[in-house]
């Protein structure tokens, strides 16, 4: 509503201003158009008066030459009569003139007013037309703008809709992502949990595999008599999933070739641990690809 007021305010103001202007113009016209005809009228009267006066003067001069004193009184009387008559005549003619002038003025005025009115009418109509045009235009514009607004609105709505949709889809996506992340986290947690459980289980399993390894190596370890409690030698063995020991390296020597060799021979004599074959491949990769074996006798008598 206020929008339409605001939108129609300017055109309305314009039309109001126009109307005011027109009315003002007409008023001005009415008041300021009269003097020029009056001036003309006065001029015309004066011209008549001038000519009249001269006539009167001429006649009076002729009278004066013909009659002196008596004649003067007669003349004066006559002149008075004439004067009155002339006055009357002049008055009458003046009145008539006035009348005529007034009539003429009136006619003219009417005419003019008519014309003016016509003109005004025309102008008005023109104005109206124009106004109409303007209004039409405005309307059109308004319509246009409205249409445009509509369009824009539609557009905006569409955009909004789109945005909404986007937002929704974004939200959805977000939600999904969140859900996904949650799921992932959950699954990770689950995996971690599983891993933990598995780790615990695998620790157990690993320990049991290590126990087998330990038992085999112990059984094969033939210590040289130079071995003493407290000596130690660390080997790194490399295994393959079949349980076969494929490589043996001394990583920490005992300082005694014989001791080291006895350890290495123990491992090589084990050769293969069939039990490792059934191991979970992950565990194998993690813990059994390489295993360190620390040989540190505690059961010797020396």
């Amino acid at each position: 509503m206020s929008d339409s007021v605001r939108k129609n305010f300017l055109p309305t103001l314009a039309s109001l201003a126009l109307h005011a202007g027109l009315i003002g113009g007409l008023y001005y016209w009415e008041n300021h158009r009269e003097p020029p005809p009056k001036t003309v009228e006065v001029q015309i009267i004066e011209a008549k008066l001038v000519s009249l006066k001269t006539k009167v003067k001429d006649a009076a001069t002729e009278d004066t030459r013909k009659v002196n004193k008596v004649e003067v009184s007669q003349a004066v009387e006559k002149e008075q009569d004439v004067k009155a008559h002339q006055e009357e005549e002049r008055k009458a003619s003046a009145e008539k003139l006035q009348e005529e002038t007034e009539k003429q003025a009136k006619v003219t005025a009417e005419k003019q007013a008519k014309e003016l009115e016509k003109q005004a009418q025309e102008e008005l109509s023109l104005l109206r037309k124009e106004q109409e045009k303007v209004e039409k235009k405005q309307a059109e514009e308004k319509a246009k703008s409205e249409a445009k607004a509509q369009e824009e609105k539609a557009k905006a709505e569409e955009i909004a809709k789109k945005q909404e949709e986007k937002r929704k889809s974004d939200e959805k996506e977000k939600r999904e992502k969140l859900a996904e992340r949650k799921r992932q986290e959950l699954s990770q947690a689950k995996v971690a949990q599983e891993r933990r459980v598995k780790a615990e289980q695998s620790d157990e399993a690993a320990n049991s595999y290590l126990a087998v390894l330990k038992e085999r190596v112990e059984r094969k370890w033939n210590r040289p008599p130079s071995a003493r409690n407290g000596m130690s030698c660390e080997l790194r063995i490399k295994l393959v999933p079949t349980g076969r020991i494929v490589d043996v390296d001394v990583v920490n020597s005992s300082g005694s070739d014989e001791f080291d060799r006895s350890a290495e021979q123990a491992v090589r004599a084990v050769e293969k641990i069939d039990e490792l074959k059934g191991m979970d491949p992950d565990m194998f990769e993690r813990d059994f690809r390489e295993v360190n074996i620390l040989f540190r006798p505690e059961d010797l008598r020396l």
Binding site: L210, R223, V291, N292, L294, R296, P297, E298
Partner: peptide, 17 residues
Amino acid sequence: AHAVLTVEITKGSSKAT
């Protein structure tokens, strides 16, 4: 967290080689 597992061998035989 991964370290190479170490098996400790503290016993053995003194069998003839």
